[in-house]
Design a protein around this nucleic acid. Structure first.
Length: 423
RNA sequence: GUGGGUGUAGCUCAGCUAGGUUAGAGCGACAGGCUGUGGCCCUGUAGGUCGCGGGUUCAAAUCCCGUCACUCACCCCA
């Protein structure tokens, strides 16, 4: 079979035709929609100083602790491949002028996490992310979610469910962690092994444990958690829900929803889709506050996993990825002289905007015709020894099989006029 | 890091349970039928260290051990 050296490394993949057309399509659609919402694209580096991530995502998070590709470069600097997009954007904002403080930015590109790959999870994967800065208003969260809904609609994805929750202010989160620890202490032995570990490391994670037993324990404390939220947090969340209601966007309030990164506060949400396997979140987002240097930037945003979007589309056979045809005209030739003629002709036609396929393999005419047919062209130009002598070309109509003999200028004229009709 | 499944032609797979001549099919590729003309049809040709290494055996794609890769799931996340 394939040798190791010809394979991409584990968790990475080559994106090639026909799949690449599916990627281009969803990217084009996304850019169109994002422009309507007034977003500008930002392209930050794939590598950053490690601290850009450790400081903003949280030193204790799994993403930082065990999933980050981190290394020392030749100058002894600690570098990491970005595991997500928000931190890099915030690093940019912190160093940018005041005009950037209320930017609306999106990014699109690869992220890297050193996890065991499985369905819907690669080590190099692609996210489309959006950040709305300097708008400390629940309406901004709502607008963000509406954009997300709009994108899914544009891609043709329905049956997605939005789960939403509030984490409250940072002070609330501390109170909740304390309260939850206290409440769970007597029930520790009823929790699964993982949750006993989580109790020490990250109590909130116990809330969204998939284990049934843990769910039964946790459900009793959800109301108590809600009571620990400050009035300000409750008010904020209610306004988010009100805005969603006015836009008629259905959401499921999911008190168990916790997101893994430390920078979130107030609203958090996830979009799930049933067509996917165990990794069923196609998107996640929330409001955050990230400190870089002495400056704290607040914003709201989300990231969409593009591989997972394409998985959903494939499950519904909605990719429509294949272009109908790559070229308009195929140029077949017999002999080196004729190939030269075709080379020159193809250049002129391409300058005129006509997509040309040029047969370079010098195979039999039959084989060249077969290639032309496969390429799906409507016309083939044939140049052989006879045509060289007569200084003509044969133009064959592939739909009805007829062909006519034309000189160069007649041919150019005919094809450019056909192209205009085609447009 | 832990557990399950799978590795046979370019692709999709059969063959393995009860080891036995030259390892098959479909699709694709290439060539011919039609000596300068595509699709449809027919015929033929090429293409394989059966993932890799070791073991058992007169004999291994098949049984055993190891190893690597892919894949699904756990943890966690998009």
């Amino acid at each position: 079979m394939t040798s190791n050296v010809s394979q991409p490394i584990q968790g990475t993949t080559d994106i090639v035709p026909p799949d690449i057309y599916g990627w281009q399509k969803i990217e084009d659609q996304a850019r169109t929609i994002l422009a309507r919402y007034g977003f500008d694209e930002i392209r930050t580096p794939l590598i950053e100083r490690s601290e850009v991530f450790t400081r903003s995502l949280g030193q204790a998070t799994d993403v930082v602790q065990k999933e980050m590709y981190a290394f020392e470069d030749r100058g002894g600097r600690n570098i990491a491949l970005r595991p997500e997009g928000t931190a890099g954007v915030m690093r940019y904002i912190a160093g940018a002028g005041p005009e950037a403080q209320d930017a609306r930015l999106y990014y699109l590109g690869p992220m890297f996490r050193a996890e065991r790959p499985q369905a819907g999870r690669k080590r190099q994967f692609h996210q489309l992310g959006v950040e709305v800065l300097g708008a400390p208003n629940p309406i901004a969260d709502v607008e963000c979610i509406s954009l997300q809904v709009h994108l899914l609609k544009e891609w043709g994805i329905d049956n997605a469910t939005i789960h939403i929750n509030t984490r409250g202010l940072f002070d609330d989160q501390e109170a909740i962690k304390k309260g939850l620890k206290k409440s769970l202490e007597p029930h520790l032995q009823d929790l699964c092994k993982d949750c006993q570990r989580r109790y020490k490391v990250n109590v909130l994670r116990i809330l969204d444990c998939k284990n049934e037993k843990c769910g039964h324990v946790v459900v009793n404390f959800l109301d108590a958690i809600n009571d620990l939220l400050s009035d300000e947090s409750k008010q904020y969340f209610n306004e988010v829900l009100e805005g969603l209601k006015r836009l008629d966007i259905p959401v499921v309030v999911q008190p168990k929803l916790v997101r893994g990164l430390d920078y979130y506060l107030h609203t958090v949400w996830e979009v799930m889709h049933l067509a996917l396997g165990a990794q069923d979140a196609i998107s996640g987002g929330g409001r955050y506050a990230i400190q870089v240097g002495s400056k704290t930037t607040e914003g709201v945003g989300f990231a969409i996993g593009l591989e997972r979007i394409l998985d959903v589309l494939r499950a519904g056979e909605k990719t429509n990825a294949k272009p109908t045809k790559k070229v308009d005209v195929w140029l077949a030739s017999q002999g080196q002289d004729a190939l030269y003629e075709n080379l020159v002709l193809a250049y002129s036609l391409r300058v005129q905007g006509i997509r040309c396929g040029l047969d370079l393999k010098q195979k039999s005419l039959k084989a060249q015709m077969r290639n032309a047919n496969r390429a799906g062209v409507s016309y083939v130009i044939i140049c052989g020894e006879e045509e060289i002598v007569k200084e003509t070309f044969l133009l064959k109509d592939m739909d009805n099989g007829t062909q006519e003999e034309l000189n160069r200028s007649q041919l150019m004229e005919k094809l450019t006029s056909l192209q205009q009709i085609g447009d």
